[in-house]
Design a protein around this nucleic acid. Structure first.
Length: 110
DNA sequence: GTTATGACGGCAT
DNA sequence: TATGCCGCCATAA
């Protein structure tokens, strides 16, 4: 399980609406995965039942923009609809209020 | 085989 | 604030 794609899915699915996590955070939790790998995994999970829009760059930027600006627009729409606050320069405000912490999810492994 | 490039991130300039 | 570099690693050229 550790370091598997399934673990990333399981974790991302547990991110509460209205909160976000950075690629690095997800990777750290799913060690030994790296942030880059998480990005790759999510890239192939667009069609899966997964709240991919709740994963952003560590600086709050929507890095999917590089792959498809339209998806970034969609991601922003989803997040704002969930109540996520954006800064004036179009980034997610990375305050502890909006950044989810896996340790509080009461994670269960199987 | 080697290089470049990605839904990355941290540190040094 | 803004680049640049390096580590990371799968993929494409």
């Amino acid at each position: 399980m550790r370091g598997s794609v399934e673990q990333v899915y399981a974790l991302v699915r547990r991110i509460p609406a209205g909160k976000v996590m950075s690629y690095g955070q997800v990777a750290a939790w799913c060690a030994p995965l790296t942030a880059r790998q998480v990005g790759r995994i999510l890239a192939g999970a667009l069609e899966d039942d997964l709240p991919w829009w709740r994963v952003v760059g560590s600086d709050g930027r929507l890095r999917i923009h590089k792959r498809d600006p339209m998806l970034a627009q969609l991601q922003r729409a989803y997040l704002q609809q969930e109540g996520v606050i954006f800064t004036a320069d179009g980034r997610v405000q990375m305050t502890p209020e909006q950044v989810a912490d896996p340790a509080t999810f009461e994670v269960e492994f199987s």
